[in-house]
Amino acid sequence: MRRKKIPTWFVLIFPALVILAAVVLVPLLFSLYSSFTPYKLTRPDTLFKWIGTFNYQKAINSAVFWAAFGRTVLLLTIALNLEMLLGLGLALLVSRVTRGQRALRTLMMFPMMFSPILVGFQFKFIFNDNVGLVNNALQSLGLTNEAIPWLVDKNLAMFSIIFAEMWSSTSVFAILILAGLFAIPQDPLEAAKVDGCTPWQTFRHITLPFLMPFIYIALAIRSLDVARAYDIVQIMTNGGPARRTELLWTLIGRTGYVDAKMGYANAMGYISIVMAIFFTIFFFRKLNAARSELGMAG
């Protein structure tokens, strides 16, 4: 009897499949299963009690969850758009620099080298109402005589977090867009100049369409990043005060690890993952559309 030969392609990808199954698939299935149980970390026996969609229903009916969800979408929208605009501006400016551009590019990447936890501590101090840098500067300059509660006020707290996020990640956009700027062929730009296009017309109808694939890639990467924003917020405000800066992952983190309610936390996590998948699909569709426009599809 001839032994059936295992296909070579399967042999080659088998180790990768095993590793992926061990580190991604199994934990994913386990957490999905636990979201249908009242699993509490301190009571391992609760893992074997099936409660159906109770956790999902609880999350869907929870005003706290939806408020955190709404805040996360708000953060995502504002931070991504501002980072994109600033990154674009920064990239356009740097692309015009003829001397020391390499040094500028390195400098631009500095904030990306900081751990988000450090960024959180840094801005927590900068925005501290009593001993913080911003208030001291404003008071010394005579611009205000009050201690502005940056991390407490309803709007300012969210602004402070968005500011910290932007500081640390605008350069992601700038670097990717800069790469796009370098990749633009010079012929259409020169043709536009010959045809008498204004700089704005050139930017709007030639440069920007060429940059769109790069912008969408940056948006997709950063949307996943921001949608799971945790470290900076955890350090700066821990979702407070009065849940004013509570985002999905600070809520889920506290529910899972501090309250030890991992089943409920996982249910909220899965709802949030659906949101992340939605954003990814949205941006990739846009990316493909932009590539088609440039004849780069397929």
Partner: peptide, 19 residues
Amino acid sequence: WIEASNLIFPEIQAAILGD
């Protein structure tokens, strides 16, 4: 207690801040 505390303190903050 800790779980209860995590439910109580945001409401204390909400009252202090006037929400």
